[in-house]
Design a protein around this nucleic acid. Structure first.
Length: 822
DNA sequence: ATATACACGGATCCCCTATTTCC
DNA sequence: GGAAATAGGGGATCCGTGTA
């Protein structure tokens, strides 16, 4: 039979000792299809140079006899081929060793310990990655499949009979189709419980939402007119209903928000408690957790996506939201917020509260569904570009994404994949220590007018490409090589040398770099969610290239490469600063890849010409870009007041657009008042060019604070608890607040933002932590603290630019009477 | 285990010395 | 008068959060 097919999720099973890939997807009629396929399984043994033909034949014969009898199955070497391959850009002879079962490749590798074998590789990719590499049946692309339909067949032990798929097909062949469109069937879910500790409390209700389906299942009965609420007898029945609905709807994607860390493990634990089989899988299997600390839950045949994971690993650095709570993320991307509802223990809830609770529960699933749809184009593009399934794409960090992209492109270079570093190698890498980073120019504090800012486009990546820097291109000193700038190691200067023969990593990055440019243009011409997503995906890959090379867990980690890249980064930045100064412009600031300088009397055209001239001298794909012209900008001293503060500045464009970096205004661990006051003062000064209005405004605020006219909400301080309370060596205010929350037995998730304020207390203690109160705790806010430790520090450096000293304000309580401000 | 380094700055920790308190 | 307690200064360290 023939059909069209789009692969969504990949898995595999063993039958008679061999591996078979299971690929779940859809046909054009939206029928759920499960494909069964197989692929050759092998690893590589790289031979030492100059191994004689006879010797190779001899080893080959020995390897062909390897058999492994373990784990209730027999694996043997099926055949061995000799091939000319590349490994780390070097031509090698390698043995391709085919074996019965992928999981035994490691054991096979252990038996190939002949002295003529230099390295063994290619057995640690994971079966799914290996399969996709081998067969090129890539996720989320359309194919025409030819195969045999299994219907009540005995093949593979009757696998088609236990699969709840519309079709189970044993694949014979396939070909690519151009067809692009695909919309997955998505079901979102969310649970409400009485205790945040996994499995400890009861699950009160579960909501399920898809495009056509809306339901809240609960055993807490009250009179309600809400038709989406379905009552069941008890928690046990609710869990069974949940399974039943998921199976009936049979979605491609089951999506939750923090569901890897909360909803799914909770449901699992409760099901275990009630001895219910949570048979969500297409083969009636239960969800499987893996990954320890930040585990993930996999459901056979349905892609379980924890949207929080995708957003936090891939997008959080480009987002405005200060937390990744569903509420805030929904606000940013959907302009929608959670329903107002204060979660209480169910025993405290009144009858009418329950209605709101149902609504709240349903709404969370709706938000999750809508957010998924918002991010779907991005996940789809990522999956297609990186060629890994949605399940992996939605969970992997940037380094893993980068690595997968490289692995899926190696065959073009005839390259054997490098192995993952072992734990001891990772420790060695970490022990060797990090590399010296970029250069930051120390600004001279002050207010400046007419500023231009240049920055390098994708600086690290363009350096890697232009100088061919990578693990595989690193060489001993020779002729005609790229040389890194001098790098200081243990007091001595060292230079690293890189081949001119293009390495595969720089080549792959060059492609990414060019595609990034092309798709950015495409998006500009045709702005839609898909062109944006594609442009975004390449932007992210491009941006994480250097981080990958310097990451101790990377296959293609290289300390030397990373050091060299950064040495170039420093060199280019410093040289650019020098060149601009030589042309008569005063440089104000620069950080890593940027330079800000005074335009003087020059016109914008002059500056653009200057940029053009600088660009003519740059090598390879390196490019300097105009970040913008600014009417005015301010730089301040550090708190100590002796030097100019780096990574802290504010500038304004002609059109009034303000760019604020590093100031307390953009930091979430300062109270709202301090942030707003600072923001306003910065804007007033940037607009006016002097401090007059700002100072008046500031005095007003101080007056208000002293008269307690500021709302307590504006004084709440929010700090993240980043680890368990007991692990803190230093007991800071937010730790004290967290302890209080715990004592009150209020819900507090790991990593949550702790909110508190500093109150007036009788305590003699000078420690701030002894004045901490939770929001709901009665008390007056501590005026002295908010003056001395919040609003003054936020603005005094700014006023110092104008030689205005606010010091007399912080001398002490006595002097801070109302009359001090005139 | 889950991309890198640089940087600021609050708050506590910790050591030391001076001062105060207590007997 | 002398020992113990306390205060306060100041650098080191921890911690959170930014920029690039």
């Amino acid at each position: 039979m023939k059909t069209q097919f789009i692969p969504i999720d990949y898995s595999y099973f063993d039958f008679e000792g061999k591996n078979y890939a299971l690929i779940y997807g859809r046909d054009p009629n939206n029928k759920k299809v499960c494909l069964i396929d197989s692929c050759p399984v092998y690893l590589w043994a790289i031979l030492k140079d100059k191994t004689s033909k006879e010797k190779i034949e001899e080893i080959k014969k020995k390897i062909e006899k390897i058999e492994i009898d373990a784990k209730s199955r027999k694996t043997k070497v099926e055949k061995v081929e000799i091939e000319n391959k590349n490994f780390l850009n070097r031509e090698v002879k390698a043995l391709k060793i085919y074996a019965t079962n992928y999981k035994d490749l490691h054991d096979v590798a252990d038996k190939i310990d002949f002295p003529e074998i230099e390295k063994r590789r290619g057995y640690d990719l994971g079966f799914t990655t290996h399969y996709i590499l081998e067969r090129r049946l890539e996720p989320l692309n359309w194919y025409e499949i030819e195969g045999e339909m299994l219907n009540n067949s005995d093949e593979f032990g009757g696998i088609d009979q236990i699969m709840n798929a519309d079709f189970v097909i044993k694949m014979k062949s396939f070909k690519n189709l151009k067809e692009n469109e695909f919309e997955p069937k998505v079901l979102a879910y969310d649970i409400e419980t009485d205790d945040l500790k996994i499995g400890k409390g009861e699950i009160l209700m579960i909501s399920l939402v898809s495009k056509e389906f809306k339901k809240v299942i609960t055993w807490k009965k009250i009179d309600t007119k809400k038709d989406y609420v379905e009552f069941v007898k008890d928690e046990k029945e609710m869990l069974e209903k949940f399974c039943k609905y998921v199976k009936e709807i049979s979605p491609d994607v089951l999506v939750g928000y923090f569901s890897d860390g909360f909803d799914m493990p909770y449901i699992k634990e409760r099901a275990e408690k009630f001895k219910i089989k949570l048979n969500l899988g297409i083969d009636n299997s239960q969800p499987k957790s893996s990954g320890g600390a930040s585990s993930s839950s996999r459901i056979e045949g349905i892609t379980h996506v924890d949207l929080l994971k995708f957003i936090s690993t891939t997008y959080s650095q480009y987002m405005q939201s200060e937390t990744l709570s569903l509420n805030e993320v929904a606000k940013e991307f959907l302009k929608d917020t959670k329903k107002e509802f204060k979660i209480q223990h169910s025993s405290k809830l009144k009858e009418h509260n329950w209605e709101e609770y149902y609504e709240y529960n349903l709404h969370d699933s709706e938000l999750t569904l809508n957010l998924f749809e918002k991010f779907w184009p991005d996940m789809l593009e990522f999956s297609r570009i990186i060629k890994e399934p949605l399940f992996e794409i939605s969970r992997n960090g940037l380094s893993k994404q980068m690595e997968s992209y490289i692995l899926h492109n190696l065959s073009r270079f005839n390259e054997i994949p490098e192995k993952r570093p072992m734990n001891n190698e990772i420790s060695e890498r970490i022990q060797r220590g990090g590399v010296k980073g970029a250069f930051v120019y120390e600004p001279k504090p002050g207010i400046y007018e007419n500023i231009a800012m240049f920055d390098f486009t994708s600086m690290h990546t363009s350096i890697i490409i232009s100088y061919n820097i990578s693990k595989e291109t690193l060489e001993e000193k020779g002729k005609n090589q790229f040389q890194s700038p001098e790098i200081e190691i243990d007091g001595k200067n060292k230079i690293f040398y890189f081949s001119r023969k293009p390495g595969f990593v720089p080549t792959i990055l060059k492609e990414i770099f060019e595609k990034r440019k092309r798709f950015k243009e495409e998006y500009k011409k045709d702005p839609n969610i898909f062109t944006k997503a594609r442009s975004n995906a390449f932007k992210l890959l491009s941006a994480s290239a250097h981080g990958y090379i310097g990451f101790s867990g990377a296959r293609y980690y290289s300390w030397e490469a990373s050091s060299s890249i950064l040495a170039y980064v420093r060199q280019f930045n410093i040289e650019t600063i020098k060149k601009i100064e030589k042309l008569g412009h005063k440089v104000i600031y620069g950080d890593t890849d940027s330079v800000a300088f005074l335009i003087n009397k020059d016109s914008k055209e002059d500056i653009k010409n200057l940029l053009k001239r600088l660009n003519e001298k740059l090598p390879g794909v390196m490019e300097l870009e105009l970040e913008g012209f600014f009417k005015r900008g301010i730089w301040v001293t550090t708190r100590e007041g002796k030097s100019g503060a780096k990574k802290k500045y504010a500038m304004i464009k002609e059109d009034g657009e303000v760019k604020i970096r590093g100031f307390e205004t953009v930091r979430r661990d300062w109270c709202k008042l301090a942030r707003e006051v600072q923001d306003k003062i910065i804007r007033l000064i940037l607009n006016e060019g002097n401090e007059k209005k700002a100072l008046e405004y500031f005095k007003e605020v101080v007056e208000k604070l002293k008269k307690r006219e500021i709302k307590k909400e504006d004084l709440i301080i929010r700090t993240q608890l980043t680890k368990p309370i007991s692990e803190y060596k230093s007991i800071s205010p937010h730790v004290v607040a967290a302890k209080k929350i715990k004592e009150n037995e209020e819900p507090m998730a790991h990593g949550s933002l702790i909110e508190y304020y500093i109150a007036e207390t009788n305590t003699k203690s000078k420690l701030i932590r002894d004045k901490v109160k939770l929001i709901d705790e009665k008390g007056e806010y501590n005026i002295e603290y908010y003056l001395k430790n919040q609003i003054l520090p936020a603005v005094e450096n700014i006023f110092n630019i104008f030689k205005i000293d606010l010091d007399y304000l912080i001398e002490g309580k006595k002097q801070m009477k109302l009359g001090d401000f005139k």
